[in-house]
Design a binder for these strands. Sequence first.
RNA 1: GGAGAGUUGGCAGAGUGGUAAUGCAACGGACUCGAAAUCCGUCGAACCGGCUAAUACCGGCGCACGAGUUCGAAUCUCGUACUCUCCUCCA
Length: 427
Amino acid sequence: MLDIKQLRQDPDWAKAKLAARGVKPETIDDALALDEQRRRIIVQTEDLKAKRNAVSGEIAAKKRAKENADDQIAAMRAVGTEISALDQQLAEVEAKVTHILVRLPNFPADDVPMSMDEADAREEYKWGTPRTFDFTPKAHFELGEDLGILDFERAAKVSGSRFVYYKGAGARLERAVYNFFLDEHAKEGYTEMITPYLVNNDSMFGTGQFPKFTEDVYSITNDGEPLTLIPTAEVPLVNYYRVEIVPSEKLPVSFTALSPAFRSEAGSAGRDTRGLIRMHQFNKVEMVKFCKPEDSWTELKKLVHDAEDLLQKLGLPYHVITLAAGDASFTSAKTNDLEVWLPAQDRYREISSCSNCTDFQARRAQIRYRDDNGKPQFVHTLNGSGLAVGRAVAAILENYQNADGTVTIPEVLVPYMAGQTVIVPEG
RNA sequence: GGAGAGUUGGCAGAGUGGUAAUGCAACGGACUCGAAAUCCGUCGAACCGGCUAAUACCGGCGCACGAGUUCGAAUCUCGUACUCUCCUCCA
């Protein structure tokens, strides 16, 4: 959530920033007009309330002295009616302001391409050289089905499209990959977490999924408050400190967690219909950081580095891009995507998204620390995939495939595969 | 799923209709070469608004959360959440 005070302070700047994210300038004007109305009502009610408190004290004094206080009580009645009328007005205006405010995306950072077009992402650099094949590389799903380690058909029978069974060496590979990721993050000082996979509405609001993106998630209810299947471990990790003041000496805090991520993929019908790229349920190792505002850009660099490190150790070619303002997630001020090379698609595909959300989530979720003056301030939050596990498996299968249809295990994963060095067809 | 008890400031803990005791901690000061102890003083964190150079001042708000009753609610009523105990169930 944005700070209404910041909008008030420099409306033109705010309008320019948000225009790149598709927000109409009139929306800001509306919010500010309502905000002014709101403050006017507050001044009126607070004057009346101060009066009420004073008269109420007089009544108490008179009652104690066993005197008659009928005049004061009559006055209280009159003031009370006025106050409740104003309170009602205030509630209505506040609801309107809030309605707008919670739907405004974060301000893009200064070095983000100010465009609504996905294609205007900026490539920062490349790592590795895509391998040249002396045969036609198969797609990962083809390899997986031929090797008998991925089963999409039975998953479709059991659950539906965009689900998968990993089987035998496939399951083992998935497990090897995420264990490798988690171990590497532990070396970099991340605290490993296992989180709830079902979260409440306040948590979904805190990280910015609600109220705007209810369509994208699976919600379930067990005869009461609805719960949502997490679309990313970012939700339970960031909300860990919701409505708390984090001791400043703990900052920066770095968490990592493996979790399944559940996404309805509404609106992406027909895209990536085959394979592991776009699933309703997939495993992801997530990294989350909480830090002081002055450190967040350095921490973003570290986050990107920690994600890159995994790809480098796996020997997978990738590039790093900075997303255009209009393409970054709702909460993000700046997002760096890592895109890994997929030979069968002959292009880079997103495998990690690292974002600095500045104080946007912290304001929603009320996560603060005390600055040097002891005053509570919002922390900055960052999140990044480190990495999407299914997509990493897909990249490994495609990049490490051999002409005979077998797949060589990347060296760093061999210990995690109990010494297995190659995946051969299994029954 | 059933029964009961509870939730007050950083912590402890009073307060059953008149506007949040007290202790500890914290902060400021005195004493001291300095510290401890002692003494004096301040003190509910957060939030909102006004006025601002201001983290100063004024006011609102504030007793788990939300409604209600009342001139007035920590206190009475209803609902919700969470914690604890016992039973039931369960991996």
